[in-house]
Nucleic acid binder design. Structure first.
Lengths: 152, 152
DNA sequence: TGTTGTTAGTTGCTTTTGTAACTAACAAGG
DNA sequence: CCTTGTTAGTTACAAAAGCAACTAACAACA
């Protein structure tokens, strides 16, 4: 037993990518958004940004595109396109804000509210399944750690 | 104090998107890859998939595109494009496998090895900073949880 | 008013990703 | 040898994201 591996570098210099956090994050994010959002897309034909916008409008009520953009940290061009898509699906209505005619008050129409309720149920089911898988404690810990990471 | 909020839905039906795991994952993944990979891109002009491929070749030595694709769970078309880009930067060489001429043996050239070493150092620095921020215990816990999530 | 600077939102263009179809090489059986 | 089926890798096309430039509305002030 002279050599343990045929790796091209000394072990001291090696770094295991499979434990590299940004890599793990990307991997996990892909895996989970596949599980959830792909599913969701099939049902309502919505893209990820669209259901994020829907989520915010459903949860917090009438607001402007700017507010959504800030709250959700989504770039304004993405919000703009998502709003248009949701309007075309008749999920929301836009009314020019009379106080400041540059902006519009966005709000969910009944079909949008229905989709929001359905989305909430799906999200809750998803979280329950996750807690089953990771355990209640660890699922909570994960959310906590991810929140801390996002603030940077 | 009659109403606590002007939300359009009953609280019982509400679901807080800011605690929704797939959403938190996407947010955190974006934030962290910004911190790391954007930085890295500037230095070597590489995209995320490119340095992932580089990582695998540097760490495990000569292998085929197929093997990279399997080990790293990257779709073969992405690997194909990354390999071409790395070849154009003269970071790797491709030699047709004489055993099976459909595939090629890929290996890092000196500049690629240099980039790999630099990447390892940067990744280690990144992880150190993360451990400082989250604490050693929690950083480890995070990696552990993310690994469990990826297996699905 | 008119000028300058800022903000909300949209549009156009370029880069990147995802998907499906394709080529070339192989393998097994007739 | 000639099918038939499979595999490694590439290419072409469509969907999506990122970025910069643009329009319209506002605000402050000479």
């Amino acid at each position: 037993m002279v050599e343990k591996s045929a790796s091209p570098r000394e072990d001291a210099d090696l770094f295991e990518i499979s434990s590299f956090t940004p890599y793990l994050l990307a991997q996990a994010a892909d895996a989970q958004s596949d599980v959830f959002s792909r599913n969701y897309r099939n049902r309502y034909g919505m893209l990820r940004t669209e259901w994020r916008v829907l989520f915010h409008l459903g949860r917090h009520g009438e607001m402007s595109a700017k507010e959504i953009s800030e709250r959700a940290s989504i770039h304004k061009t993405k919000v703009s396109r998502a709003v248009r898509a949701l309007e075309e699906k008749r999920f929301l209505s836009r009314v020019t804000n009379s106080e400041d005619r540059r902006s519009e008050r966005l709000s969910l129409r009944p079909p949008g509210q229905e989709a929001f309720r359905h989305l909430c149920r799906a999200a809750q089911d998803y979280e329950s399944a996750l807690e089953q898988r990771l355990g209640r404690q660890d699922a909570g810990k994960l959310r906590d750690l991810l929140k801390r990471l996002s603030r940077s």
